[in-house]
Design a protein around this nucleic acid. Structure first.
Length: 562
RNA sequence: UGGGGCGUAGCCAAGGGGUAAGGCAGCGGAUUUUGGUUCCGCCACCGGAGGUUCGAAUCCUCCCGCCCCAGCCA
């Protein structure tokens, strides 16, 4: 088995790879060339991750190459900020385009020349029809369109007009260049599609050099051909465009004949992958920015603490097909936990502190114990932790009147404090409002390190805790779905489905000192709670943690089940 | 009453004439100093109806459902 076989096996098989394999086997293609062609009008999201993994993945597997090409044909929507962000995100995801960074705008001159070629061949014409009128002439899904009165202009007149369009003689929308195909085609894309429109706008890269810009349909395939792309992979909604893609390739003197293949987009329940909508969330301040940890953007995913490898794993497990699908959120979480369980260091953090006083532990005395950094990875070693008379445990871990299935602390009950000692609750101290504010407990010296005592006594639960002596304060941000329903917008209004409780900020958390200097973005597991990562908002005195994903919580499930 | 796609378990997804892979979720059990992890077990006759065949999820016919297309967006 060759190295190629190995990597493709790891990536999984799918109909795209089958097609490519066949093209390679039959010699139709010698070097596989793909491309990831984002429009720089927003940030990349999880949906794009699928396209990136597919295009770059396939290129790697076949020892070919994948180009990063910005589809910058509409200067009214595109910005340099997005170009920079996209490059950053593709790199973060783990892919490298090497020397192959391109822009559709690099080909504007060539594309223009080919447009004149089409005119000279009598296959394109300048149309003066106003937009609204052109719409009505296009016909409907069931009725053919009507030929524009400008469809039969002479080559000379078309050339003259097109050149004057380029020269800037006409205002926006005054005229367009159209391909002369078939106004009666059942495929709307073939009813004389627009190839060029007038746009007096400054382009992020070409500045004011142009005032006519090619449309996606005209620019895309030709850019593929120029770059020698062999397999142009895109999403399902472009399936109807393939006949036009092919028509242009066949009618232009392009240097190569690339082929387009379509696959289904990646969707996840409770998430929205619409760039248009994400832009709105940012502009209207519904989230803190493109990198808000609740956003499905790669920048948001990164800040949330989700490793790129986990995203790649999820994409791989989701597969590549042509059927529309919506993956469950749990499936995404699985990939995240699967990776983090193996790699994240364990730490103890108390999100909602409840004070514990160990009555038989002398005032002022502390002791250093040893805690394992990662039970899944012995090489991660151990760290020292402090035990003392005053401790804090999670409020949820104590119940005054515990139900049958509750294993944790309650009056008279004994539990293990992880890597510490067994403690028994002797009394729950309440405030005037009747709320439990402190637990008076005793510890068993024979259980040092959390080990079972010689008498073989066992406990039902092990709790995480921190010592008042050296715990530090931290802010923890808990995230929930950005939307309240798995199919946001199904009733027509996405905004109405925004979850008002998608962010919960906890200000008085207490964490063990080893967490004081957690590198930004590094994942840690807060034992028994979940995976967290330090947010850029952290300050030297007070770290801020984002909950990446919670641990599977069987107890919570038992509770809701009743 | 146009064209292009898609329909296999709650979700994702193999299989393309020989009698239903795998993963996620769920359920049951074992182990466990995380009610975590790990491990074991359970969980489908393939949108519907006909037909062809010794035999069909796989071939044929008809039907049903869902998605996309009427931007000078991509």
């Amino acid at each position: 088995m060759s190295a190629t076989d190995t990597t493709t096996t790891e990536a999984g098989r799918d109909f795209i790879r089958d097609i490519i394999q066949d093209d390679v086997d039959t010699g139709r293609v010698t070097t596989v060339v793909t491309r990831f062609p984002p429009e720089p009008n927003g940030y990349l999201h999880i949906g794009h991750a699928k396209a990136i993994c597919l295009n770059f993945g396939v290129a790697e597997e076949y020892r070919g190459r994948c180009h990063l090409r910005f589809d910058d044909t509409n200067p009214t929507k595109e910005e340099q900020e997005f170009i920079d962000a996209i490059k950053r995100d593709v790199h973060w995801l783990g892919f490298d385009w090497g020397e192959h960074l391109y822009h559709a705008s690099d080909y504007f001159e060539q594309l223009y020349e080919w447009a004149e070629y089409l005119i000279r061949e009598g296959k394109a014409y300048v149309d003066d029809t106003p937009p609204d009128q052109m719409r009505s002439q296009r016909g409907t899904l069931t009725e053919p369109g009507q030929n524009s009165p400008y469809r039969y202009r002479s080559v000379e007149e078309n050339l003259d007009l097109f050149r004057r369009m380029r020269a800037g003689e006409f205002p926006n929308g005054a005229r367009v260049l159209r391909a002369k195909i078939d106004m009666a085609s059942p495929n709307m894309n073939l009813r004389d599609p627009v190839l060029y429109r007038i746009l007096h706008a400054e382009h992020p890269r070409t500045g004011n050099a142009w005032c006519v810009y090619p449309t996606y349909d005209y620019a895309h395939g030709q850019s593929d051909a120029i770059e020698g792309v062999t397999h142009s992979l895109c999403t399902l909604e472009f399936e109807d465009h393939r006949p036009l893609y092919d028509w242009l390739i066949e009618n232009l003197p392009v240097p190569a004949h690339p082929h387009q293949y379509e696959f289904a987009r990646l969707n996840i329940a409770y998430m929205v992958m619409s760039k248009r909508f994400l832009t709105r969330l940012v502009h209207e301040g519904r989230v803190s920015g493109w990198d808000d940890p609740r956003m499905p953007t790669l920048a948001g995913v990164r800040r949330r603490g989700i490793p790129a490898a986990a995203l790649r794993d999820f994409v791989r497990r989701s597969g590549i097909t042509k059927s529309n699908s919506v993956s469950e959120y749990a499936s995404f979480e699985y990939s995240i936990r699967e990776l983090l369980n193996r790699t994240a260091l364990r730490r103890m953090a108390v999100l909602r502190p409840l004070k514990v006083v160990v009555e038989n532990w002398s005032e002022g005395r502390t002791e250093t114990l040893e805690a394992i950094n990662n039970p899944e990875d012995p090489s991660a070693g151990t760290r020292p932790i402090t035990f003392g008379r005053e401790l804090y445990i999670e409020r949820d871990d104590f119940m005054e009147n515990p139900p049958k299935k509750f294993f944790r602390l309650g009056p008279g009950r004994e539990v293990r404090l992880r890597y510490g000692y067994f403690i028994t609750c002797r009394e729950a101290v309440k405030n005037a409002a009747g709320e439990v504010v402190e637990l008076r407990c005793t510890y068993d010296p024979a259980t040092r390190g959390g080990n079972a005592p010689p008498d073989g006594r066992r406990v039902q639960a092990t709790l995480h805790w921190v010592a008042a002596a050296d715990a530090i304060k931290a802010e923890v941000r808990l995230y929930n779905h950005l939307f309240t329903r798995p199919d946001p917008g199904a009733d027509g209004d996405l905004m109405a489905d925004l979850n008002p409780n998608s962010l919960e900020v906890l200000h008085d958390c207490l964490v063990e000192p080893a967490l004081a200097a957690t590198p930004i973005g590094e994942a840690v597991q807060f034992e028994r709670i979940g995976y967290f990562s330090a947010d850029p908002d952290s300050t030297p005195g007070k770290p801020v943690f984002n909950r990446t994903v919670g641990l599977r919580d069987t107890w919570a499930r038992v509770q809701t089940r009743g």
